[in-house]
Design a protein around this nucleic acid. Structure first.
Lengths: 194, 194
DNA sequence: ACATTAAAAATGAACGTTCATTCTTTTTTT
DNA sequence: AAAAAAAGAATGAACGTTCATTTTTAATGT
């Protein structure tokens, strides 16, 4: 019964501290000692919950990625018409990136860095399937451009990461109007007919 | 004459080694000793060219960013018509990201990480002005959507970083066809009229 | 209900290593 | 021969991780 007795709160505190410190200082400047201190835990305790530093950051990545996709598809019904369904998911993702910007920022850092093991990266991608299914359906119906899912993601979704990052740096603020413009650009870039 | 006597080759070798090691291992796992070894130089010698590790990575970032924008605008003439000018710059940027993908990857890592000082980041942005000017002109002529430059960059340019990264990971290959589709998506997302 | 006890969880200090940086000496350049 | 550049070895600090011990938890017997 070993694992079950350990406090989930403590694990979560460690994950939370990891996100916050890596966001602010980068992976290279967040020692285990600081993570422990921020989580109000002894450094040694970390090793009761995680194998080592790499495992801690891998698990943190998977946790946040799962939260992200769960949020994105929370209210999505796979029978929704294409355009409406896409707008729904897009808005949820935008919402996540803005409201949970700490988490979104952490993902952006992980996704552009060799700090996450390839295995965990693969694990994180899995839950995006509903969006890929929607696109598949959209292509069949002649509503979505018949191009690679990577291209669709690059133009429809990924720009939100850049905008979130830019906003986080204080360069500009993504208000309601911007968001509507962003949606129009996203939709323009992947819909058929032009 | 202190600085001038030092070998520019040695400096470049250090910058090159930094890019390669940071790309492959991340900043957190590239010690000065390894950089020195890869550049065939003593660790102590690094400090004749750079103040410290932070300075080395800052200067590397600025170097690569300057190379990037120089490449992007190499054959651009500010009097070119909007659509043609945009296509020209876009293709050059795409070209850079694919042909100089090591450098592009390094920039992507720097841009999503707190590893670069804010000052050096600002320095790196400066040289993008010709593109912003083109957009300004395009908005006035009613050809480009009258939205924030950040939005335009997010949809017209930034997706290339994602695609380059995806390609680097081996998930898919960005061939000629994909590139043409990508351009169409980029242009669709920022042009007026729909 | 309480005392006892064994296991689990948590800890602070310690360990060995690695790191960025500096120091002293040697080599190269002019 | 003097100055600059480069080198290897040295240094102290910081790191990830483990060790020896203490504290907490929960099950058991009375």
């Amino acid at each position: 019964m070993a694992k079950l007795q350990k406090s989930i709160d403590k694990r979560n505190a460690l994950v939370k501290a990891t996100i916050e410190l890596v966001n602010n200082n980068g992976f290279h400047a967040t020692p285990m000692s600081k993570i422990a201190k921020m989580a109000n835990v002894s450094p040694a305790t970390i090793y009761l919950y995680f194998e080592n530093k790499q495992d801690l950051v891998n698990q943190t990545y998977i946790d946040v990625k799962a939260e992200y996709t769960k949020y994105a598809f929370a209210n999505y019904d796979p029978t929704t018409p294409i355009e409406e369904g896409f707008k729904m998911i897009w808005k949820r993702i935008a919402d996540f990136k803005l409201k949970e910007s700490e988490h979104a920022m952490f993902l952006a850092q992980c996704d552009n860095t060799p700090m996450i093991d390839e295995e965990s990266r693969q694990e994180g991608i899995k839950h995006l399937q509903p969006l890929l299914d929607l696109w598949e359906r959209g292509k069949k119906e002649g509503i979505i451009k018949p191009i690679s899912d990577y291209l669709l993601y690059a133009y429809a979704i990924n720009p939100l990461s850049f905008l979130m990052m830019t906003q986080k740096r204080g360069a500009f603020t993504l208000d309601k109007t911007h968001l509507e413009e962003a949606y129009q650009s996203a939709w323009s870039s992947i819909k058929m007919c032009q």
